[in-house]
Computed example of a mutant assay.
Amino acid sequence: MAASSVNYQLPVLAATMLLFAASLWQSIYPDQQWLQHIPTVLALPALLWSARRRWLSNASFTCLAMMLALHIVGARWIYSNVPYDEWFRAVFGGGTREWLGWTRNHYDRLVHFAFGLLMTLPVAEAAVRYGGLSVAWGLAWAWMTVAGVSALYEVFEWAIAIIAAPDYAEQYNGQQGDWWDAQKDMALALLGSTLATLALGVGLQRQRRRTVG
Rank of each mutant, 00 (worst) to 15 (best):
L139A: 02
V149L: 12
D178T: 02
A124Q: 05
I78C: 09
S134R: 11
H71K: 05
M119K: 07
T145K: 08
G131M: 00
S150I: 12
A165I: 07
R97M: 05
A165C: 00
M67R: 10
A165R: 13
L121Y: 14
W77P: 10
Y153W: 12
A69N: 01
D108E: 10
Y130V: 00
L110Q: 07
D178M: 01
P122R: 03
R104S: 06
D178V: 11
A147C: 12
E154T: 07
A159C: 10
A69G: 08
S80Y: 10
A69Y: 06
P122S: 00
W77V: 04
V149S: 03
E98S: 05
N173W: 01
V146K: 00
D167R: 08
A147N: 09
W141V: 15
M119D: 06
A142K: 03
F113E: 07
H112A: 06
G116H: 04
A169I: 15
V91Q: 10
L118Y: 10
A127C: 03
M119T: 11
G148H: 05
E157I: 10
A126N: 04
W179H: 13
A147P: 02
A164V: 06
P83N: 05
G148W: 07
H112K: 13
V123T: 11
R76C: 02
A69H: 02
R76N: 01
L133M: 13
P83W: 07
V91T: 03
Q175G: 15
I163S: 12
N81E: 15
W158A: 13
T120V: 01
H71T: 05
A75S: 15
Q176A: 08
W99A: 02
Q171C: 04
A169S: 14
G116I: 04
V155N: 04
P83R: 13
N81Y: 15
V73I: 09
Y130K: 00
P166V: 02
W179R: 14
T96W: 05
W141G: 11
W141T: 15
Y168C: 02
V128M: 11
Y172S: 08
G148K: 01
R109E: 05
G177V: 07
E170D: 07
L139V: 14
G132N: 08
M67T: 11
L152S: 14
G138V: 11
M144K: 07
P122D: 00
M119C: 14
A90Q: 07
A126G: 09
